[in-house]
Each structure stands twice: as C-alpha cells, then as structure tokens.
Amino acid sequence: MEAGTSRVKRGMAEMQKGGVIMDVMNAEQAKIAEAAGATAVMALERVPSDIRAAGGVARMADPTIVEEVMKVVSIPVMAKARIGHYVEAKVLESLGVDYIDESEVLTPADEVFHIDKQEFTIPFVCGAKDLGEALRRIGEGASMLRTKGEPGTGNIVEAVRHMRLINGQIRRVKNLSKDELYAEAKNLGVSYEVLLDIHQHGKLPVVNFAAGGVATPADAALMMHLGADGVFVGSGIFKSDNPEKFARAIVEATTHYDDYRLIAEVSKNLGAPMKGIDIKQLAPSERMQDRGW
C-alpha cells in the first residue's frame, strides 16, 4: 500500500474534471456551494477581490475557517498557502485539507523558490500563465495546474490569454523535431525530460483548470471551450447578487459548455455579476499574475 504517489495525487485532480471549484469564506457559503453542485471548495479568509481592496499582506486563512468548512461539507476542501511558504503548506496538510493551492493571490513568502511539493502526501495545484511556468511547477511536484488569469477582477481576458498561450505552446512543442527540443527547453526554462514528455504526448501530464476572472456562466463555458479541464470561481459567486442561483448556473454551464441554449437559459435573471476591473487600469504592482516565476 502506497499513499501520496503521483498517481494518487494527480488522480484526485482527474476526479475534479468538468467540475467547478468555488471560493468560500465560511461554513454557510461552503454548504451553498456543495448544494449547487461544486466538486470542491477553496476555504479562504477573503476572496481575491477583497484581498485586492484591502491591500497589505495576504496570508493563509485562519485554520478555524478551514476546519469549519471541512466539518460541514463532504466534497474535497482546498486551501491556499503563500508561494514558497513551506510552513503554511505543512500547517494546511496537518489540518487534513485535500489539496493545497500555492497561490499568487496571497503575498509571496519567497521571491526565488516555490515549495518543494514532491515531499508532501497531499497534492498541490499551482497557477501558470505559460508553458514554462506550468512545467516548472510540475517539476516541483504540482499535481494540478490552473491558469493564473487576473484574480479578483471579474475580467476573463487574462485567463483566456494564459489558456491560449499554454495550449499554443504545447502544439508548437509537439511539432518540433527532437533535436530542437534542447534549445526549446532552455528557452522555456524547463528540463529536457518534461519537455520531451509534452512533445511525445501532446498534452500536459496533469489537468489544467481555468482560474482568475471567471464572472459569468458564459465565462466558465468559454474557458471549457478553450480546453480547460474545469473551472475555479473565486470572487464571482459570493460577490454576485444571488450566489445560490449563480453557483448552480456556473455548474451547468461548465458541464454543457457547448449547449448555448442551456447557457442562455441559466443566464436569465441572475442579477448583477461582480463588478469588473479593466486590466489596463491595474498598476503593475497590483497584478497578481506577475507573482511566481
């Protein structure tokens, strides 16, 4: 019997495919998310848009919140640790969370090194905005990826950019000749072996979800159309007028992302989605996607 193998850790993410993972800040929201059909919840102290508004240093949530959420739902519970914050991740592991998000939404604790995720029994999800980042995270032991997007903006444009870029780069690597892979590995800043795997299989070895800016059912469906394996919704649900209805609508639109009549139906009378931010209005220091390397 072996626990924490890469098959067990990656497999856990495979089971989330086609699903919606929702940010929740308390037990009550977690119950709403589960009842709406979320495949997992992310327990947080503040959603990204509030973190953005509050400024200052954003850290791992109070363990009380994480434990409360774990107590009330039967679906998996994820929680965020700061980039490079080994101890926050170990604390979350000790609480028994099912997945750790080493997340750029929180203020990085280390500006050089990410967490060595290989040695953990529980799996990690990490953000990536291009293939180089994606493969470096996999090399460090990430068992699941997500686009970084631009969290807390309600603006899908960056998630679209990241998903298209990663998938475009994969297609390019697949078509390179074997001897060209060495230079490409150097360009991307990744090892030859992981790049060879992409070249041979034409896809990432782990699932890749969309995250960062999903604000409507149509946004979720767009990301699935672009090849996402599933969707993370952060501020979108509990910053909307009617979270329950909104959550259900996003779940349905993710499953039936190519059924436009159904998406029209579930999008009716949802009330106002979260207020969005134009990415161009963000100062460089406010861009969360530039955290991590």
């Binding site: 019997m1 072996e2 626990a3 497999g11």
Partner: peptide
C-alpha cells in the same frame, strides 16, 4: 459509505 478511508491524505494505491 462515502469517503470511508478518510480524506485525500489517506488515499493510496495497492
């Protein structure tokens, strides 16, 4: 029984 072995850290292969 759902989640009968516990949480993800109790997941395994054999």
């Amino acid at each position: 029984a759902r989640n009968a072995f516990g949480r993800q850290r109790e997941s395994f292969e054999t």
